[in-house]
């Protein structure tokens, strides 16, 4: 007897509920493109925002919506990008690998601080207090905001308080560009190896007192470069990438080593005429 009751009760209940669910499923169904989930699963989930979207899911939505190409994701490996492109049947839109580059070489051993800054130890905070006290107004303050902001462990401060970018780890997300109060970082194609590592807009040898590796706007690099590759603007050389093939010629006669060749393994190579920097210790703070 109880077997029949039980089966009847449960059968009835489940039938009723199944009918309700079937109806609800039809009336209340909300469509969502299943491809979004798939694509999101293929993305690296770094949520770094380098693609210009607030996170990986919105980027996936944009990809599925055809608003952007998968190559815009700088964190994915090339296979990953290919896989997404293949899945969605679109072109890759791949770009040359880009990295962040620092336009300053003024570490504590070559650049001088005029005043002693006291307060919160971040570049952003220090730069708001009389520029941070560094002799060169344009130079790196060395508190390492970029190191802290980098999600990929690609920036480390060296012994002279200058950030060094690990080209392999850098994904060109642009966080360091945003955080640097002196705007010293920029995103560059990795093969732009001829590089001006200075932003000082002053000219003349007086500025060497503040920083031994500053650009004095002597213009030799512009003269030595072939064609219109380098022009002098606002007392600084400007390299017009893509105009000519890059060579090491322009760096050779630079007296301070403000223009360098960035070698993947050796780091920054200075020209043969540049004054060697021997000093290792920190320069004294203050002015006469």
């Amino acid at each position: 007897m109880s077997v029949i009751i039980a089966i009847a009760v449960l059968g009835g209940l489940t039938l009723l509920l199944a009918v309700m669910l079937v109806i609800a499923n039809k009336k209340l169904y909300v469509y969502e493109d299943p491809r979004i989930d798939v694509v999101e699963g293929m993305l690296p989930h770094a949520n770094c925002g380098a693609c210009g979207y607030p996170g990986c899911r919105p980027f996936a939505e944009a990809l599925v919506g055809g608003k952007i190409l998968p190559g815009k994701c700088t964190v994915s490996s090339s296979e990953g990008v290919e896989a997404i492109a293949e899945y969605l049947g679109v072109a890759m839109g791949a770009e040359e690998k880009q990295v962040a580059r620092l336009a300053c070489a003024g570490g504590t051993n070559v650049a001088r601080n005029k005043a002693k800054y006291k307060g919160m130890e971040t570049c952003q905070a220090a730069s708001l207090v009389s520029g941070g006290g560094k002799g060169c107004f344009w130079g790196c303050l060395g508190f390492g905001d970029c190191e802290a902001v980098c999600d990929f462990d690609a920036i480390h401060m060296d012994e002279h308080g200058l950030p060094v970018v690990d080209e392999d780890k850098c994904t060109a997300c642009g966080d360091c560009v945003e955080v640097c109060p002196k705007d010293l970082f920029s995103i560059q194609p990795i093969n732009n190896r001829l590089w001006v590592a200075c932003k000082n807009l002053e000219a003349g040898d007086e500025i060497l007192e503040d920083c031994q590796v500053a650009c004095t706007a002597c213009g030799r690099c512009a003269m030595d470069a072939s064609g219109d590759l380098i022009t002098m603007e606002n007392n600084l050389p400007v390299i017009h990438y893509g105009v000519e093939e890059l060579t090491k010629d322009p760096i050779q006669r630079c007296p301070t080593g403000a223009i360098v060749w960035l070698d993947q393994k050796l780091g920054a190579i200075k020209g043969r005429d540049s004054n060697p920097v021997i000093r290792k210790s920190e320069r004294e703070i203050g002015f006469s």
Binding site: A115, K116, Y117, K118, G119, V129, G133, E284, G286, F287
Partner: peptide, 11 residues
């Protein structure tokens, strides 16, 4: 001439 060091900090 001696080196002079000023301290700077925020108000």
């Amino acid at each position: 001439m001696s080196v002079q060091t000023l301290n700077i900090s925020t108000s």
